[in-house]
């Protein structure tokens, strides 16, 4: 199956775990990945057309090569999907962008998140057949964050208040999902640029809630969630000393481990190295 894949800025990011294993995963799942070379998507959607140019350029590039664009990053997914949605219905903005880029785009490309792709195009049952390494019921808390699910009329990925796609994914690769009340709560995203306070308080509530519900690690789908929950743990633990070190993993890293991929997964870039947790359950 041919898939258009948009890595965005993930290869240049602080933690590259979201992007690193994708080629090996594609090989294991027998996917033919065509990369749309990365220019930044804009990271966060704003209604200002000037912020949309780079996302539209990517979508135009994708339209020439196919009709579906897959991305592993929640930020890219949200920005591209919202740009698509806006250009479909807002004629003023479409005209303004067409005038600047010299090519009309009105939302023809379908934007898919990798989780959505696994569910709708491959199927979680089929994915389960590819699993080589048993994760022995590792207790993982799926943290959705905000960008995967909201706004609902744009993403339509899952129920915005009671999503199950991440849990289904974790079950299919042999983990035991842990339900916790903060799974769709915002972690503060880019607010660290202006106030660490909001981020520290929120990341603490999320990690604490996951741990109290019995999780051993948290799985995320967004580089900003990963930063706020993982890299900020240093600052969180200065304020809340009782908080245990919690490994934060990208869902692609978990999938790569389950598929038996031996390549480097970027664990050494994490603040809390999840390697210790994985050696507990893995045979070798």
């Amino acid at each position: 199956m041919k898939v258009l894949y948009y890595p965005g800025c993930l290869p240049y990011s602080r933690t590259t775990g979201l992007n690193l294993p994708i080629k090996a995963i594609a090989k294991a799942l027998k996917l033919d990945i065509v990369e749309i070379p990365g220019i930044c998507c804009g990271a966060f959607f704003t209604t200002n057309p000037a912020d949309m140019y780079s996302a539209v350029r990517t979508l135009l590039d994708a339209r020439r090569k196919g009709n579906e664009l897959m991305t592993t990053c929640a930020l890219c997914y949200n920005v591209l999907a919202q740009t698509n949605f806006t250009l479909k219905k807002d004629q003023d903005k479409r005209e303004q962008i067409t005038a600047f880029l010299g090519e009309e785009y009105s939302g023809e490309v379908e934007v898919l998140h990798f989780l959505q792709f696994l569910r709708d195009r491959i199927g979680f049952d089929k994915l389960n057949e590819h699993v080589r390494v048993s994760l022995n019921g590792l207790k993982i808390a799926p943290y959705y964050g905000c960008l995967l699910l909201r706004p609902y009329e744009v993403t339509k990925l899952d129920n915005p208040e009671h999503p199950t796609i991440f849990e289904d994914f974790l079950i299919s690769i042999g983990c035991e999902p842990v339900d916790f009340p903060y799974k769709t709560e915002c972690c503060g995203s880019y607010l660290a640029a202006v106030s660490f306070d909001a981020v520290i308080e929120h990341s603490y509530s999320i990690i604490n809630s996951a741990l109290t519900n019995g999780a051993e690690a948290i799985a995320v789908a967004c580089p900003l969630c990963h930063f706020n929950l993982d890299q900020m743990q240093e600052r969180i633990r200065l304020r809340y000393q009782e908080l245990n070190e919690t490994p934060i993993l990208y869902y692609t890293q978990l999938l790569a481990v389950a598929l038996g991929i031996k390549e480097t997964l970027g664990f050494d870039q994490h603040f809390v190295n999840p390697y210790r947790l994985l050696t507990k359950v893995l045979p070798s």
């Binding site: 800025c9 200002n48 995203s189 660290a192 640029a193 580089p223």
Partner: peptide, 30 residues
């Protein structure tokens, strides 16, 4: 309203800086 201090640039990931740029600066606004 965003100060690109060395602290922030070394600490924050690229996505946070780009997102904050869209929120707290006027670079893309007429």
């Amino acid at each position: 309203f965003l100060e690109y201090t060395q602290d922030l640039l070394t600490l924050l990931p690229i996505q946070a800086m780009v997102a904050a740029k869209g929120r707290y600066t006027s670079v893309n606004l007429p």
